[in-house]
């Protein structure tokens, strides 16, 4: 991977949560992130996919500084922000924004839209009021809402419009990287399509870089430039979207792709083979963590943990047997 214009670099990132018994004694670690490394180039959309519990949201929150990393580096625009205390990382967070599943739900019901949109600017900048107002109006137009909405309260607008306001609120600070955590899950297909269109147009307009966390592979395929597939706290495959979706190397990626229903094609319920569910992250299997469900598992897989191998153009996979 060329080092050219890497905006966010993550190296050996770990986040362990202590597991405590009733007497509050630590009895083990939950390894939510276990040695995660990747880098994000300016202006790209990196998709992060995986099943629930694989650590994708923990990754987003650790990058943001909502969780403090146990070990590892997060280099954002040249500064290591991983081990900073929350108040120290505040000045970097202005340009690194986190977007929750439903950004509309983070609006205060007792504030007008104008109030909610002004707040981040008051916290992070010392712009005078007229300039803030101009910025707020610009962002509201960018997300496709009329300026008359500024004086309304959240309950007076629809859920879809609340989402747009939530996005506008994130964008008022002109971030360079936005972490989108499941921005379309739970939405109907038609609403999902309009939100995706909006995200893409905002990305073009403001030159944003997205980290797109999702479990919906068909959406990721559509809008991401590169994809990282996570399983139990580790990236098992990463590469350009085209390469990962057409020639998945890791057996886990292959099963994930095989599980998506394709309308008009063969029915997944007739062909799908992957059995079982992911093991608990507090008690990981030895060696490769996918081996308990892997159709190709060999004795070697139980002994050695496979590293990410960069054996293919635009693609890396952590599997002993992939070819």
């Amino acid at each position: 991977m060329s080092a050219g214009d890497v905006i966010l670099e993550v190296a050996g990132l770990r986040k362990y949560f202590p597991v405590r018994n009733v007497w509050k004694r630590r009895v083990g670690w939950l390894r939510a992130l276990d040695d995660v490394s990747f880098s994000v180039r300016r202006g790209e959309i990196l998709g992060i996919v995986g099943e629930s519990g694989c650590g994708k949201s923990t990754l987003g929150k650790t990058l943001m500084g909502i969780h403090t990393a146990t070990a590892g580096r997060v280099v954002f625009e040249g500064h290591d922000i991983a081990r900073l205390k929350p108040h120290q990382s505040r000045r970097f967070r202005e340009h690194l924004q986190y977007c929750y599943q439903d950004p509309g739900a983070s609006l205060d019901p007792r504030w007008t839209i104008r109030g909610s949109l002004h707040e981040p600017l008051i916290v992070h900048t010392d712009l005078p009021r007229p300039e803030r107002e101009a910025r707020v109006r610009e962002m509201l137009r960018a997300v496709g809402l009329p300026e008359t909405h500024l004086d309304l309260y959240p309950h007076e607008i629809s859920g879809g419009q609340q989402r747009r306001v939530g996005l506008a609120r994130i964008l008022t600070l002109k971030p360079s990287v936005v972490i989108l955590d499941e921005p379309t899950s739970g939405l109907d297909v038609s609403v999902q399509a309009t939100i995706l269109q909006l995200l893409l147009s905002l990305q073009r307009q403001f030159g944003l870089t997205y980290l797109f966390i999702s479990h919906d592979l068909s959406v990721v395929r559509l809008i991401c430039d590169r994809v990282a597939v996570m399983y139990l706290g580790r990236i098992v495959e990463i590469g350009s979207t085209g390469a990962v979706f057409t020639t998945p190397r890791h057996p886990y990626t292959q099963s994930l792709l095989a599980a998506i229903p394709v309308i008009g094609g063969r029915r997944v319920t007739e062909t799908f083979a992957l059995e079982g569910e992911p093991p608990s992250p507090t008690n990981l299997p030895s060696g490769c963590r996918f081996r308990t469900r892997c159709p190709k598992a060999q004795p070697l897989c139980a002994q050695r943990d496979p590293p990410l191998r960069a054996d293919w153009p635009d693609q890396q996979a952590a599997c002993h047997l992939a070819d």
């Binding site: 629809s158 879809g160 297909v189 038609s190 609403v191 999902q192 399509a193 309009t194 995706l196 269109q197 893409l200 068909s218 959406v219 395929r221 559509l222 809008i223 309308i263």
Partner: peptide
Amino acid sequence: KLLDSLPTSEAGIRGIPGE
């Protein structure tokens, strides 16, 4: 329109206008 709004790589993203 509902079928068209399914994400596919060929057609791109098409929503249903209106609410």
